[in-house]
Design a protein around this nucleic acid. Structure first.
Lengths: 259, 259
DNA sequence: CGTAGTCTTGAACCGCGTCAAGCTTGGTGG
DNA sequence: CCACCAAGCTTGACGCGGTTCAAGACTACG
């Protein structure tokens, strides 16, 4: 049932497309998203003002400066926030994974470009009712504060990467982040040999890491040559030993990048 | 009574130094800090759990991983948050100006090093009562959410700088940020000729900008040679034309970096 | 089999880091 | 008042890591 509703989305060639409601109680991100602490009436109210939108990989979600009359949780897939300078230089400034929040309550204009890095499904809330609910529901405000603080921590870890790490360390850090989040999905700790699927193209990785696409490619080759990873197709990566990968990432300790 | 307990702290020559209480109603950051929207009882309660601490320029406030049993607002001065890799590479990840908030409610361990970049006065709140008050006071949580979202925006602007800007653009961006905030203090818009005092040493600037101290120095010289700025002593800078400075910063539009 | 999109590889270049002196300023003591 | 020193800043010479520019190679898809 759930799955069938989701497959309907895949219609429009380029536009976002709505699809049938999924009950919040069946939602895969029920206990991790903004709504995590809502129950009963609150959840019912959220259910009323929510709607789903899907985007195919590569599609824009909003442009910087555009009016955005909803906020949303990422249900499945990966979305990227980017800043672009006038001469075209691009820097990714946010990577939104399932349960992450998109948009800013109380602000109608998007501050960054948002793009679907993979196929993405968003659970959207109309802005006005959501803002009103934020005022009335301490749960919601608290949860959002907590999530925003986590994102701030992640952004600061990322600043360390951009400001001080070498190209090799950046690649190792990125792969380690993906490994960690994949382990988190199965509620295990990352360790030993791990098979991963990178959620970003080489170009998106270069935008994330503040490098060129060529340098990304070369460093992946170098990590492979040194036996830190194996490569399987364009997106597939096998980490031969997670601890060894972390060593290459330049971080003194493991941990880092929440969510 | 209140003051006497605090003045006792005033012991060590290099340790933090407390000073007499200031009434919240007289506080210079009264309407910009976390407490901005608190009135009456709420303010009185905050007043009860607050205490001041001072730090001389260069002193550490907390170390990453240390227990931190307070949160605080910066009243005067500038504090820096930094990450350090094991080999000593350092990246500043936060620059706290007056009214900015230090610490994370609900987390006792510091996630970064905090250092006084100039002489700093903090208005501290003991953690436990502050956390409790956060639960009970929607005002407070909302204000903190708003401030955290602003900081996240600033961090993302900063990521663009670290990932994609040249050394010259970074310096111009930094000086423009200082110019903007100084204009904001006198409630004017930055424009034309402006005299500034940089709140950071060359070393701190290099940590902020992801450069070496030598490159910072060279780029300041270059901006001076090109007539974009004049230099007066170690910390003094005169921006000859703010618009020209912004052109050099690589940003397509003005704006950016809230707070 | 051809073609487009994505990724890889190579060679040359250059911006910034590194290393090593000098310079400027302020503080201290003779 | 000046000699001395330490800390912070500036300047120069040189090398390296990552960018740039330019071909190839690998898929996926007609």
């Amino acid at each position: 049932m759930r799955t069938s509703t989701l497959t309907q989305i895949k219609s429009g060639p380029s536009g976002p497309v709505a699809h049938d409601q999924v009950r919040c109680s069946d939602c895969p991100i029920r206990y991790r998203a903004v709504c995590a602490q809502c129950e009963g009436d609150e959840l019912a109210h959220l259910e009323q003002i929510k709607f789903y939108r899907s985007f195919e990989a590569g599609q824009p979600i909003v442009w910087e400066g555009d009016r955005m009359d909803f906020v949303a949780s990422v249900v499945t897939g990966v979305a990227a926030l980017t800043h672009v300078l006038e001469d075209g230089r691009t820097q990714m400034v946010g990577l939104l994974l399932p349960s992450d929040f998109l948009g800013r309550p109380g602000r109608a204009l998007a501050a960054y470009n948002a793009t679907a890095a993979t196929d993405v499904v968003l659970c959207c809330f109309r802005r006005a009712p959501f803002d009103k609910m934020m005022q009335a529901t301490p749960h919601l405000a608290h949860r959002l504060l907590e999530m925003t603080l986590d994102e701030l921590d992640a952004a600061r870890e990322w600043m360390l990467l951009l400001g001080r790490k070498t190209a090799r360390e950046r690649l190792a850090s990125f792969i380690a982040i993906i490994a960690r989040r994949q382990a988190a999905l199965s509620k295990s700790r990352p360790a030993g040999r791990m098979e991963l699927e990178l959620p970003l193209s080489r170009e998106a990785m270069s935008d994330y890491l503040g490098l060129t696409i060529e340098t990304v490619s070369r460093q992946i080759t170098a990590l492979r040559r040194d036996g830190v990873i194996e490569v399987a197709g364009k997106r597939g990566v096998i980490v031969t030993d997670y601890a060894r990968l972390v060593e290459q990432s330049g971080d003194d300790s493991d941990g880092g990048l929440p969510s």
